[in-house]
Simulated scan of single mutants.
Amino acid sequence: MELALSTQTDGDRSVVAARGEIDLYSAPGLRERLRALVTDGVRHLTVDMNGVEFCDSTGLGVLVGTLKRLREVGGTLVIVCNQERILKIFRLTGLDQIFDIQDTASPAGS
């Protein structure tokens, strides 16, 4: 399955909703979208993964890299996910201790 991304931006806040699979094939597209947002001045980024069916280590690497870039500029990254199969990946890798993971997304302007 392909990865579909939609973005809602309000000032220095953006919500990126992902649907599909984040894997070796699709992760570069996600990386470029997130990188472009940070480059354009977004400092508070939410990645809504409630529509993600699969995420491999490449996808996790994209999220870790984005978190690092945002921290360097005083920003924040929130992961929104209520799917147990995706949350399990974060727990198994210990990334649930690094990311701010929430059940629901706030509007970009919140």
Results as ranks from 00 to 15, higher is better:
83 Q>W: 06
73 V>T: 12
33 R>G: 06
32 E>A: 01
73 V>K: 14
8 Q>Y: 06
1 M>G: 09
40 D>H: 10
41 G>Q: 13
103 D>G: 00
18 A>G: 01
25 Y>T: 00
42 V>Q: 13
61 G>T: 02
28 P>H: 03
103 D>L: 02
72 E>F: 13
52 V>P: 02
100 D>N: 13
4 A>S: 07
103 D>C: 00
50 N>G: 05
5 L>R: 00
31 R>A: 06
89 I>E: 12
46 T>V: 04
77 L>K: 14
18 A>P: 07
49 M>N: 02
26 S>K: 11
91 R>T: 04
28 P>K: 06
17 A>R: 14
50 N>D: 02
52 V>Y: 02
97 Q>P: 03
45 L>S: 12
51 G>Q: 11
2 E>S: 14
79 I>R: 01
50 N>E: 01
79 I>C: 04
37 L>R: 07
23 D>M: 12
97 Q>K: 15
50 N>M: 03
53 E>C: 05
42 V>S: 10
46 T>E: 01
107 P>T: 03
66 T>N: 06
7 T>A: 03
6 S>H: 02
78 V>E: 08
38 V>C: 11
73 V>L: 15
105 A>T: 04
56 D>N: 07
64 V>G: 02
37 L>M: 07
38 V>M: 12
51 G>L: 10
6 S>W: 00
8 Q>S: 09
99 F>D: 11
69 R>E: 14
81 C>D: 09
69 R>A: 14
20 G>P: 05
107 P>Y: 06
14 S>I: 02
83 Q>T: 10
6 S>M: 05
36 A>M: 08
41 G>K: 12
24 L>R: 13
44 H>T: 08
97 Q>M: 13
82 N>H: 12
80 V>L: 06
25 Y>W: 11
53 E>N: 12
64 V>A: 03
68 K>H: 10
40 D>R: 08
110 S>M: 10
48 D>V: 01
87 L>V: 05
3 L>N: 02
21 E>V: 01
66 T>A: 04
74 G>S: 14
43 R>M: 12
97 Q>C: 09
45 L>K: 14
110 S>Q: 13
9 T>H: 03
18 A>N: 02
24 L>G: 09
78 V>R: 15
8 Q>W: 09
51 G>C: 07
65 G>Q: 09
2 E>V: 03
51 G>M: 09
36 A>V: 05
57 S>L: 14
73 V>A: 15
20 G>H: 00
63 L>Q: 01
73 V>G: 10
99 F>K: 07
96 D>L: 10
101 I>F: 13
33 R>K: 13
66 T>K: 15
73 V>E: 15
10 D>M: 07
32 E>Y: 00
96 D>S: 11
29 G>H: 07
102 Q>A: 04
106 S>K: 04
53 E>I: 03
109 G>S: 15
46 T>S: 05
106 S>C: 06
85 R>E: 14
87 L>H: 14
84 E>V: 04
89 I>C: 08
96 D>W: 12
56 D>K: 03
17 A>W: 01
87 L>S: 08
108 A>C: 11
